[in-house]
Design a protein around this nucleic acid. Structure first.
Lengths: 212, 212
DNA sequence: CCACGATGTATCGGGCCGATACATCGCACC
DNA sequence: GGTGCGATGTATCGGCCCGATACATCGTGG
């Protein structure tokens, strides 16, 4: 999961670890608290060893100042390689059971603007299926096995059930939007850091789903 | 987290691994999919090594049949020890930052009927604080840094923000209920497997928060 | 009679986290 | 002028937990 997210972010701009973590936290803030350095740095080394990313040399111009006076070391900037981009495309397109779990889905969704529409639909529908199953399980629990559980546990289930129902509705909306060829919600033409349209971004559309 | 959950469940009845997993999945179904055996069995061994649990001898009566014909082995039943109960009480009462994370909070909440009211309030308020902070982070993101993110990422944040707001409201309700000395929601007098009232269960009350 | 799904125990490699350590930079405060 | 502190920045270590995998038993239905 981290691998996918890092590859995705580095596709927008070269970055060093600290920066990467901040961007990661911003982009995935809705689904996970903050990425630990204990995961980030090992993953970076793993990706570098695999050849998906490389260390970029800083100081774009005026190179041969004084090489090691004050020893400006620190801040290892990474950039994605051609193989890395390939790897990202492969990871983003392949859907498995882990794609539909909470974290997996969130990460994939966060990079939907780099995902083709067919894959987007596949993921949204798979996620819906997963949540529907969880919902059914909770309904069964609250129906049949209710007397076996204490009031607090039941309340937890009830709250979880509500969250499931809400998410299914959300997914339905998104799926309908995808099918009708609209952008997700906000008519925000993605003028972000490096918005290359190499991967079929969603067609623009002023029609937003009404959500006041 | 698993440690706490296992200790809590074994306090209701002795169980073997498979059964434990099912009960765990039932009780925590709202917050996590299913506990992996790759976590369960090592944890059981860890707990046994620490002396919190022991293997219970099956076959309560009629022991000396034929000892090993068909070799009825398998099904290792565990039961909690006195030290285990102490450990559970200690774990359930101690609150730290990890108590307020998604999983930690869920597990603690699932065992609220074995938690005294002061601790319940502390946990609910800590959780509320945590979610409020996450909510503020998402609001900032959707306000200031909105143009840096693409439409899909924004939609993810928006959905996450809504979930935060909803959970805060839910927590407010629960906190109010706790303060006024009412049971959580359903007027279910907890007649479960072994509902010992050694730990000040919530006072009963027919007044349920209206939620049709 | 045997295949299949449920029950049941167990291990292994690997991803990710929390704690911890350490070094630099800029700025505010005294 | 110094000094301390918070942000920036890289890195490791132990440990929890997961997914994949293996294997054995039991009851049931084709």
């Amino acid at each position: 999961m981290l691998e996918l997210a890092i590859l995705g972010l580095l596709q927008e701009a070269p970055m060093h670890g600290y920066e990467l973590r901040k961007e990661l936290t911003a982009k995935l803030g809705a689904i996970r608290a903050a990425i630990s350095y204990g995961s980030l740095y090992p993953t970076l080394r793993r990706l570098q060893a695999a050849g998906w990313i490389t260390e970029a040399d800083e100081t774009p111009a005026t190179a041969e100042e004084v090489p090691a006076l004050t020893s400006r070391r620190g801040r290892v900037v990474y950039e994605i390689t051609a193989e890395g981009k390939e790897r990202f495309a492969q990871l983003i397109a392949q859907t498995g059971p882990e794609t539909y779990g909470d974290t997996g889905f969130g990460v994939h969704f966060a990079f939907f603007s780099r995902t083709d529409r067919a894959t987007r639909l596949r993921i949204l529908e798979g996620r819906r299926r997963t949540i529907e199953e969880r919902r059914e399980g909770l309904r069964d629990m609250l129906g049949r096995a209710a007397e076996r559980l204490d009031a607090y546990t039941l309340e937890l289930q009830r709250h979880g059930l509500e969250a499931c129902e809400r998410e299914v509705r959300w997914l339905e909306e998104l799926i309908a939007n995808e099918r009708s060829g609209r952008a997700p919600t906000v008519p925000n033409d993605g003028t972000a850091g490096g918005p290359r349209e190499d991967n079929s971004p969603p067609p623009p559309g002023e029609t937003r789903t009404e959500r006041p």
